[in-house]
Design a binder for these strands. Structure first.
Lengths: 207, 207
DNA sequence: AAGTAATGTGCACACTGTACACATTCGCGG
DNA sequence: CCGCGAATGTGTACAGTGTGCACATTACTT
């Protein structure tokens, strides 16, 4: 290996590995972040990674956490644009809509990161991720405004996440993959609107 | 290799390989169906598979087609149970509901096959799979009955599939994985009901 | 029955993750 | 300032993967 000019110690290998992993995952998704390729990108031997990560999976998890941060960032940005509305009720609705569209938009624009971020939430318990917290906060706004009952919020969260995540999968890995962006965007708006409408118009679990 | 008692020619290797792949995928999903493991299960050399499949991916696709058939079967079975209803309108709604719950139920009971089946629909064009045709047929029933406009059917299809597929992902690979079956089933019913309600109560694309 | 196409084997190569022993370097106590 | 232990990176090795190529064996056609 040509390591001319490089110091024996890297300085901040973990960060370098995660950065390289992010780049690889961006193009090829989770399976593209291989130990050997990542360490190669960082100009280091494959085994060097084991000083900082237990195994490949741990590395992937760390990279996934970064991807998840990107997703949360994108959601926050898009939601901020929906803040200009006088009526609080309609404002809360528009924010939830923006949240869903941002989730789908991120999936379409960064499919590699999206797949990685979803597989990151490996913990089986109730999720404590930034994107999830944003969803809960948006639904809490709806409750505060009165268009959603407090008891219906948990169910609403799963319904919204399901619709939006499902569409993201269809658009990035399913039958909608490769369709014109404009068509996908229009469908996304319909699906998100339907989900939002379903949640605020049908707050109580009906059996 | 111990091939005592075996003929040089297998008889029907493709079928044997697909059967072995199906078994492996059932436990470990798509990535578990490896060329070497599949051929090993069939008692044959790894390269023998290349006489019948172009590469590993082609084999996986063939196995995925079988998994997709199982999914369609499960959907048909469950839908048949919803046929006992006098009122045609409510019958159509119940059938769509049964369809969605069957999709989710299959995902929960056979997560390996489910993941495989979804990744099978690799074709970017409009899907022509059995499960998709069942969905379209169910929506056509709603149109015939008058609770859904003919023009709103395509959008409704994507909305239903999104909600149901998204929930299946959350339940099998996402934060809902490992949750008690009863809890998952109740959530599934809520999500499916919300989707069905959203589709029949909001048939026109609202922009 | 003979020859050709179909099918399965063996060997090889590049690639992956991961152990293990070793080399190098950093930082702290004297 | 020195030196020594801890942290970090290297080298080598092994099992496993997909896949190409030459060869062996069997089935089928004429």
């Amino acid at each position: 290996m040509d390591r001319s000019g490089r110091r024996y110690h890297h300085g901040d290998l973990p960060a370098a590995l995660i950065a390289a992993g992010l780049e690889l995952a961006r193009a090829g998704g989770p399976e593209a972040v291989s130990l050997r390729e990542v360490t190669r990108s960082a100009g280091v031997t494959a085994n060097a990674a084991y000083r900082h990560f237990a195994d490949r999976h741990a590395l992937v998890l760390a990279v996934a956490a970064r991807a998840e941060q990107h997703l949360a960032l994108a959601m926050e940005d898009r939601m901020a644009l929906a803040d200009a509305d006088a009526d609080p009720a309609s404002r809360a609705g528009r924010r939830l809509r923006a949240l869903g569209l941002a989730y789908i938009g991120f999936a379409v624009e960064e499919p590699g990161w999206f797949r990685l971020a979803f597989h990151a939430g490996a913990g089986a318990g109730p999720p404590d991720t930034a994107p999830y917290r944003l969803l809960i906060a948006a639904l809490d706004d709806l409750v505060a405004v009165g268009v959603l009952s407090a008891g219906g919020r948990p169910n609403a969260a799963w319904a919204c996440w399901s619709a939006v995540h499902g569409f993201a999968e269809l658009a990035t890995q399913g039958p909608l993959r490769g369709h014109p962006a404009a068509e996908v965007r229009e469908l996304a708006e319909y699906v998100v609107d339907t989900a939002v409408h379903g949640v605020i118009a049908r707050p109580e679990p009906g059996r």
